Simulated assay, not measured.
Amino acid sequence: MTSSLRVAVVCLMLASSNIAPAMALQGSGSDISKSEAAERARAAANGRVLKVEKTSKNYRVKVLKKSGRVVSVDVDKRSGKVKTSKDKD
């Protein structure tokens, strides 16, 4: 095998070995699950989860508080950040 061919083979091997970690990093930015969104909303609002709806960017979680009020909590699909909406009467 010539030296230039060896170099090319080694370069190809190194390049292909870096593909898997790069693909794994892309996959780590996936959405959180519906159940994870429900748990985060439950903890943030300190209540019982009634319903979870999936929107384009968020999960909208309806939570029943101990006071009897229902609050709507938005949980970002990507980051998992929680934002409480206005209380409903």
Results as ranks from 00 to 15, higher is better:
M1L: 11
T2W: 00
S3D: 15
S3F: 11
L5S: 10
L5D: 05
R6G: 06
V7T: 07
V7Q: 02
V7I: 10
V7M: 09
A8T: 14
V9M: 09
V9P: 09
C11T: 14
C11I: 14
C11D: 00
L12G: 15
M13S: 12
A15P: 08
S16N: 12
N18S: 13
I19M: 09
I19S: 06
P21H: 00
P21N: 06
A22W: 04
A22C: 09
M23F: 10
A24D: 04
Q26G: 14
Q26H: 11
Q26R: 15
G27C: 11
G27H: 12
S28N: 01
G29F: 08
G29V: 08
S30Q: 07
D31E: 03
S33L: 10
K34N: 12
K34V: 11
E36F: 06
A37C: 13
A38T: 00
R42D: 02
A44T: 07
A44Y: 05
A44D: 07
N46C: 03
N46K: 15
N46M: 00
R48Y: 06
V49W: 01
V49C: 05
L50S: 06
K51L: 10
K51N: 12
V52L: 02
V52K: 04
V52Y: 01
V52I: 13
E53R: 15
E53P: 05
K54W: 01
K54D: 00
T55N: 04
K57T: 15
K57Q: 09
N58W: 15
N58I: 14
Y59A: 03
Y59P: 12
R60S: 13
V61L: 03
V61Q: 06
V61C: 06
V63Y: 03
V63D: 00
K65G: 10
K65W: 03
K66F: 12
K66E: 13
S67T: 13
S67I: 03
G68K: 11
R69D: 06
V70N: 09
V70H: 10
V71Q: 13
S72H: 07
V73M: 03
V75I: 08
V75E: 02
V75F: 04
V75N: 01
D76A: 13
K77V: 12
K77A: 11
R78Q: 11
R78V: 15
G80N: 01
K81D: 15
K81E: 12
V82A: 09
K83G: 02
K83Y: 01
S85N: 12
S85K: 14
K86L: 08
K88S: 07
K88W: 00
D89A: 14
D89T: 14
D89G: 13
